[in-house]
């Protein structure tokens, strides 16, 4: 076993438990790949429990790779995370399923004092996805970074609903979600930041930016701040835009074909989310996956730098 695989166990009900004991720093990322074997049920109820002991640190990668079957597939997922005092967790969730897959996922994170959690939810390929992420900052000095990236085309439908709950003073949260929608895809982002009464000195930044590259793709976004304390620094914002025509023309003038220029711009747009991933090797892998996905629209773009 490499790195932290030994911290993974399964209980009698089939729930996956990843428990990092107090003071343990897991060096290698713990990687869990979710696949469906032929003959297994089309619907899956998945439970994952992650417990970070005091001052523990780990990086966990969840690869959701349910492949196409004869019939549509379905997943219901529940992830429960407890981040102990001063613990550090990077949790990366990558969905690369298929157009006939329906996924409902709920992640709940409870953070104790001075814990630091980075969550990434990347939807590379899916059919109908609804992710709900709730983070409770329950101990002072806790910090959370919520990152999300969505690349959707065809008739994909991807929703992200997030709630960051500043329950106590002196916590910090950053949130960045970016969508690239093509063809007839539909995206939904609903992000709520709640600063409870007495949670003074809360700092929060929430951004949702979206690139809608066709007339038929649609994006619905609602960032929201709900603040019951009077000494806080909170920002939120959302944008919905198209590809920059001036940039496209500039690239064409330099000889880059129109379709390739579009891909470069889309990739650059999502790239901002990937840039914030601290784990370098994983960041590069995701770049590659995102490039491939964006390129997928044009299976034969020979000289394209992205395709090599």
């Amino acid at each position: 076993m490499t790195g932290g695989q030994k911290y993974i166990s399964q209980n009698a009900e089939g729930a996956l438990l990843i428990s990092i004991p107090k003071n343990v720093q897991v060096e290698q990322p713990i990687r869990v790949t979710i696949e469906r074997q032929p003959g297994e049920p089309l619907e899956e109820d998945r439970h994952i429990c992650i417990e970070m002991g005091e001052s523990a640190s780990a990086c966990i990668i969840l690869d959701d790779k349910i492949k196409e079957a004869d019939e549509p597939t379905k997943t219901k997922q529940e992830i429960l995370v407890t981040a102990g005092e001063n613990s550090k967790l990077q949790l990366y969730e990558v969905e690369e399923t298929h157009f006939e897959h329906e996924r409902k996922s709920q992640i709940t994170v409870n953070q104790k004092a001075y814990s630091n959690v980075t969550l990434l939810s990347l939807t590379l390929l899916s059919g109908h996805t609804e992710n709900t992420t709730t983070v409770h900052l329950n101990g002072e000095g806790a910090e959370t970074n919520l990152l999300g990236g969505v690349i959707a085309d065809g008739h994909q439908h991807v929703e992200n609903h997030t709630l960051i709950d500043h329950a106590v003073p002196n916590c910090q949260s950053n949130e960045l979600y970016k969508y690239v929608l093509d063809q007839d895809a539909v995206g939904v982002f609903e992000g709520r930041i709640l600063v409870q009464k007495g949670a003074q000195k809360s700092v929060s930044q929430e951004t949702n930016a979206n690139l809608v590259s066709t007339k038929t793709a649609r994006m619905f976004t609602q960032p929201a701040l709900e603040i019951y304390a009077d000494d806080v620094k909170c920002n939120h914002g959302a944008t919905v835009g198209q590809l920059d025509e001036k940039a496209l023309f500039y690239m064409q003038q330099r000889g880059i074909p129109y379709d390739e220029a579009r891909m470069l711009l889309k990739f650059a747009f999502v790239g901002e989310v990937l840039d914030q991933i601290p784990l370098e090797a994983f960041r590069e892998r995701l770049r590659h996956l995102v490039e491939k996905r964006i390129c997928g629209e044009l299976p034969s773009c020979g000289a394209c730098k992205l395709c090599k």
């Binding site: 940039a247 690239m251 330099r254 000889g255 390739e260 470069l264 901002e272 000289a303 730098k305």
Partner: peptide, 17 residues
């Protein structure tokens, strides 16, 4: 034109190739 997120090296390589 400014193109955030596209590095000069990737931009020029795409153009030259």
């Amino acid at each position: 034109v400014e193109i955030p997120g596209v590095s000069m090296v990737n931009f020029m390589r795409a153009a030259v190739n």
